[in-house]
Design a protein around this nucleic acid. Structure first.
Ligand SMILES: [Mn+2]
Ligand SMILES: [Mn+2]
Ligand SMILES: [Zn+2]
Ligand SMILES: [Zn+2]
Lengths: 145, 145
DNA sequence: TAGTAAATGCAATCGTGTTGCATTAGTGTT
DNA sequence: AACACTAATGCAACACGATTGCATTTACTA
C-alpha cells in the first residue's frame, strides 16, 4: 500500500520546499500519496473539478522540480506522476526503478523494490539516467484474466 | 549505419504484408531505413510536404501493426518509430532493446546490440514486454560537449 | 479495361501541454 | 488585526500531436 500521510505532514512537506500551503496543493498531495499507482493530470481533473487545469499543471510541475514527484509516461505517451521514494532533491531525481504499465486498467506502477542492473552502453554514448518499462497485467487485472 | 535497401526490396516488403505499393509508403520506408535514429511524424512531414499528415499517420500505424516498425516515445512523450530489427510479426513485437534519448539533438537511438538482462517481477505482475530507456548524450553530441 | 477494395486528402475535432496576464490569496511584518 | 509583498490561481488563448468521418482517387485483379 502507499505511504498515507495526514494533512499536517503535507503542510510540513510544502513548507520544507518553500511552497505556500494552498488547498489545491494539499489535495493533490493527499490524492497522490494515497494511491499506489501514478496519477495523470486528467486523473486529477476528473476528481477536482473546481481546480483549474492550468493550476493542476503548474502544481505537478513545481512538485516535480522540487523532487516531490517524478514523471513517467504511460503507453499513450501521456505524463503520469508518482511520489518519489527517497533521495530525490530539487532538480535531482533518483527514480531509476521499473515502471509497469498495465495494459488492462492502464495503471502505472512504480516498482521501487526492483533496482536496475548495470548497463554497459556502446562506445560514445553517455547516459545520465535510465528507466525500465514493462507492460503487461497488474496483479488485480491478472486475477480477473 | 542503418540497413539501406532499394526500391524493389521495399516493394517486396509491402507485398509480403499485403499492402498496396504506393509512393507515400515507399518514400516513408526509404527514409526510415536510411536513418539510424527513430523518426517522428513531424520528421516525415518536414520532408514530405506533399503528403497529407493523416496519410503519414495511417502509414505509420499500419507499419506498426504489421511489425515493420515499432513505436518508441521520446522525452516529450511524442511517438517516434524505428524499423524492427527482426522477429517482429503482425501484432507481435520483440523490440526489447535499449532506447537512448539524446537530450541535445533529441535523437532516439535503438541500441539493438544491447539485450536486456532478465528481470524478476514481484508476485502477481505478468509482463509481456520490456523496454529500457536511457537519456544522455549521443556520440555526436558528446564530442561537441 | 472495368470493377472493387484499399489508400489518400481534406476538414474537423479532441486532448494534453504551455504561456500571458489580471486577480486572488498566503505569509511575514508592523 | 491590518498591511504589503510575492506567490499562486483562474481565465483566455494558443500549440501541436493524435484521431475520426467521409468523399475522392488510386492500386490491383479479374
Ligand atoms: Mn517511478
Ligand atoms: Mn527500438
Ligand atoms: Zn491492471
Ligand atoms: Zn545527440
Amino acid at each position: 500500500m502507499a505511504q498515507v500521510k495526514n494533512t499536517y505532514q503535507f503542510e510540513d512537506l510544502l513548507e520544507k520546499h518553500q511552497l505556500k500551503k494552498t488547498g489545491a496543493r494539499l489535495r493533490v498531495l493527499s490524492m497522490m500519496y494515497a494511491k499506489n499507482t501514478a496519477t495523470s493530470q486528467p486523473d486529477l481533473e476528473s476528481v477536482m473539478h473546481d481546480i483549474d487545469r492550468v493550476t493542476l499543471y503548474r502544481i505537478l510541475n513545481v512538485f516535480e522540480e522540487k523532487g516531490i514527484i517524478h514523471k513517467v509516461f504511460d503507453l499513450n505517451g501521456t505524463a503520469n506522476y508518482a511520489v518519489c521514494s527517497s533521495g530525490c532533491h530539487e532538480h535531482h531525481h533518483h527514480d531509476e526503478h521499473l515502471h509497469f504499465n498495465c495494459t488492462a486498467c492502464k495503471g502505472v506502477f512504480c516498482l521501487n523494490e526492483l533496482s536496475l542492473p548495470a548497463i554497459n552502453l556502446p562506445e560514445g554514448f553517455q547516459a545520465s539516467g535510465f528507466t525500465l518499462y514493462a507492460s503487461g497485467l497488474c496483479p488485480k487485472c491478472n486475477k480477473m484474466q
